[in-house]
Design a protein around this nucleic acid. Sequence first.
DNA 1: CTGAAAGCGCTAACAA
DNA 2: TTGTTAGCGCTTTCAG
Lengths: 336, 336
Amino acid sequence: MRPRPTIIDVAHAAGVSKSTVSRVLQGDDSYVKQETRDQVHRAIRRLGFERNALASSLRTARTYMVMLITPDISNPFWAELARGFQDTFEKQNYSVVLGNSDWDKHRETEFLAKARRNRFDGIAINPAGVNKQELRAIHIPSVILGVREDFSTFDRVGSDTYNGVLAALEYLYALGHRRIGFIRGKHESGRGYVRLRAYQEFCKHRGLPIDESLIPLVPFDLQGGRRAMEILLDAPRRATALFASNDILAMGAMQLASERGLRIPADLSIVGMDDIYPAAMTTLPLTTMAKPKYEIGCQAAKYLFERIVGDAPPNGRRCVLPCRLVERQSAAPPAL
Amino acid sequence: MRPRPTIIDVAHAAGVSKSTVSRVLQGDDSYVKQETRDQVHRAIRRLGFERNALASSLRTARTYMVMLITPDISNPFWAELARGFQDTFEKQNYSVVLGNSDWDKHRETEFLAKARRNRFDGIAINPAGVNKQELRAIHIPSVILGVREDFSTFDRVGSDTYNGVLAALEYLYALGHRRIGFIRGKHESGRGYVRLRAYQEFCKHRGLPIDESLIPLVPFDLQGGRRAMEILLDAPRRATALFASNDILAMGAMQLASERGLRIPADLSIVGMDDIYPAAMTTLPLTTMAKPKYEIGCQAAKYLFERIVGDAPPNGRRCVLPCRLVERQSAAPPAL
DNA sequence: CTGAAAGCGCTAACAA
DNA sequence: TTGTTAGCGCTTTCAG
């Protein structure tokens, strides 16, 4: 394999200077005579020249690379968001490097350092441990995945969880349910408890009592969902419907409920949240409040891109995308 | 934000030449007096110097970046494989750029071109459209995801699908099933039909007749699974058990079966393949022949890394990881 | 053990 | 419209 041709080889072959080659490489408006341009293009083709992005980046300080830091790409929620992000940046000819933080600040920090060393043009991150100052200190245009109030000076894009939960609850209410359980996810701690607040607001608004035995707090996983369902089943007065803070919890609950012989939705309605990939594949497809994962990825990419090219306002922007109810089959009116 | 300090700034601050700084930057054995080394380190810390990976790469022709091209990261199968791949390369301080080919040759080719332009050190790919020659022509160390005989000169890592299918079928047989359906996925076309071959071999070996009405051919998606189940239900003599070419097909089949009132596994046993993320979350957890997705990613990364550092044999290696039966609850002995 | 000097391949003033 | 000339920040001989 002979050494790859450089811009100089092309210049020679085309009988021009390397600046001229560089100019046509940059395409568009660069003032180069049509004839010269064609000559250069021919030479490029003939030699099979490919511009060395490294050299170019070193000179221009633009790498056309961005880093996307999420907790875990093997989690379908993040995978879908990542897909939206990538698809959008791909159109601008950017490459995206993925980092899985595993909710670990140390790992996250490593990725940020890497982004700096490699002079990435931008960063999209769902902050696990770093704070606003630390991210600021990276000095790379960034966008926050999720509406985190503690990152208010950054562009942020997330979904309207609060109203999503409210709407899910109202949906159940409209179906006729008056005793509605709520599975809380433990991981939510620290930041907000938006879902719980929405639940409380809903109960208050509808004049429903808040029964502690109906709002189990469990880890955000399948086991958590199962455990929550056990608790709910033991409640002195059982709920007729149930909202789970995410689909995984909902699926766990569904599993246990049907093992215990409950029929869904006849005996118990269940509504999840997120609409992750598996939600449509349960034996009884799950009704859920979908989060616009892919769209969040797209919007985050747009914000970040604008910031990179300097086409964004100085202040952090905030984009809250609406959730959307996906009616499948796990929710129905209560039995009489 | 002042300009970032360069190796020269460090050199000045430490009172040495930039060559020396470069030497200590490269760590290890480089012959630099301990005292000088410390001096440099102090200067580095003091100035907050971070080596510019671009400049370094331009000079050394090593980027510490690899590209991973899979059909779709939002598909849990690939997401898990990607995770294994990333985790492994991360330990070597590499970054991985993801490309989603969407089974499209054009997109795939674009990613390969990008890998060349950016002088990536390696490529891992599940080839959608490119062939051996085309990939060869990229001249970047590569590893093939999947045991593709048409890429025999490359390192390849995949799973033992043939024996996996056989084992799944034998499992059903051992449970007592003698009439076993088989859902074929249409996408498999072109390359091999390994699964079908395994089915045929199994039937032959066990002296079971091959009943065309029991081996529907459908698209590789949820709808396909449902459709297949419809066909199976219409069969003159129904199967008591069913192997689906992948979990999605199995889940679709399960959905339709239970809508039709069949009880699983009492009336029908179902075994899937892959063990993707959602398989454990169906209302009745799916028994499935797991493919070592994460491990494939890890092994592919290892092969690729060895190839990159020149620590691999000249000929393409081939690693076929075994599948593993995950017994959950969708399969049981047939009703009498 | 350390420094000087020559690039890696490209871009961007500045001239022409 | 094109060429000349300096670098971008780092690594790597080659001397010393």
